[in-house]
């Protein structure tokens, strides 16, 4: 033992460990991925722009694509709060200079928009490219994603109206992101070494057992509206055992569930075709509930034809301000089933 120096022993052990991790350990399982397969799936874009596809798109192109593919849910100016929180708003010229969104610091923002929070422009490119439009993800071309992003950045006055965003200038635009300096990793909640403060918790409690405080400071109780907002709690608890649920908000819920069975056919069809994403059966989510639709069009001889037309073409104005995206993939057969 003493004949070997310490570093040498460590080297030998490391060598053994290395051989234990021999590659290709499971005969017959797994096969090489082809370059085309990797290209098809490896679409992620990192903050240092590794993975960013080549391309370009200007604000005008973006405005056009956004209106056609995104505005139905996010509003023409990314301002809509009806399907999701607004994409744009709440950032200032000053924020672009400092890289810190002021309204996050003074708490003046009524809600946080996407552009108020996001520090990395790569995140938006990656996400729109992989996940939007919500009902037809991965259908955009890279140039369209560049254009949409240019349009959103222009709405927030981060780039001018004649701007063309591309893989060549995106790093410069990163330097204008309003909240680019708004992130911190100084915390103990990353389960690894690369990020954070090494796992040190930020709050310390002690396990006092007796006379731990003089009085109980009760600072919040359930508001009445919240008690009833979750339906009848008696119907959400077991009817045998240590306790029962309290009867709350019962009549409304009962009434609402009745028509469901009558309309089971509609409900089945709607969920099967993905319509339930925006229309509830009994309640209005974004579009009207299906029972509202049935009530409105009931007794109209041409109702079926008109609904068919409307769902296929998309439309706005009958129920409120949010237009419905077209669903050209639905066949006539689905509507008359």
């Amino acid at each position: 033992m003493s004949r070997f120096s310490k570093p040498l022993i460590i080297l030998v052990l490391a060598g053994l460990a290395g051989s234990a991790l021999a590659f290709d350990n499971f005969k017959g399982l797994g096969r090489p991925a082809t370059p085309a397969e990797i290209k098809a799936w490896d679409i992620d874009v990192r903050p240092d722009f590794k993975g960013l596809p080549k391309g370009a798109g200007n604000v005008d192109l973006g405005a056009e694509v956004f209106e056609a593919r995104c505005a139905s849910c996010h509003g023409s100016f990314g301002e809509s709060n009806e399907v999701f929180t607004p994409l744009v708003g709440g950032t200032t010229k000053d924020d672009i200079k400092t890289g810190r969104v002021k309204s996050l610091q003074d708490g003046s923002a009524p809600q946080r928009t996407t552009l108020m929070k996001v520090a990395t422009i790569s995140t938006l490119f990656d996400y729109i490219n992989r996940a939007m439009p919500w009902t037809e993800p991965k259908s955009l071309k890279p140039d369209e994603v560049y254009g949409i992003l240019a349009y959103l950045l222009n709405l927030a006055e981060i780039v001018p109206a004649d701007f063309e965003l591309s893989d060549r200038n995106i790093a410069e635009v990163q330097q204008r992101m309003p909240n680019r300096n708004g992130m911190t990793t100084d915390h103990g909640m990353w389960p690894g070494k690369g990020i954070g403060n090494g796992g040190r918790p930020d709050v310390r409690n002690t396990a006092c057992m007796h006379n731990c405080k003089k009085e109980v400071q009760l600072v919040s109780t359930l508001p009445d509206y919240a008690a009833d907002a979750h339906g009848n709690l008696a119907e959400q608890n077991r009817e045998v055992g240590q306790a029962r649920g309290k009867v709350t908000g019962a009549p409304a819920e009962k009434a609402a569930t009745e028509p469901l069975s009558e309309n089971a056919r509609v409900s089945q069809l709607a969920s099967a075709t993905g319509c339930m994403a925006c229309h509830g059966v009994n309640n209005k989510i974004v579009g009207p509930g299906y029972n509202e639709v049935i009530a409105k069009y009931k007794g109209q001889a041409d109702a079926e034809a008109r609904l068919t037309q409307k769902v296929k073409a998309g439309g706005a104005g009958v129920w409120g301000s949010v237009p419905m995206p077209p669903h050209p993939q639905l066949s006539e057969r689905v509507f008359t089933k």
């Binding site: 969104v101 002021k102 996407t114 929070k117 100084d186 915390h187 909640m189 990353w190 990020i195």
Partner: peptide, 19 residues
């Protein structure tokens, strides 16, 4: 980077809070 980030009183968001 947009969600699952924790807003702190000073207006910074904690990123990569996972545990």
């Amino acid at each position: 980077a947009v969600h699952y980030i924790d807003l702190m009183p000073d207006g910074l968001h904690r990123q990569y809070t996972s545990i």
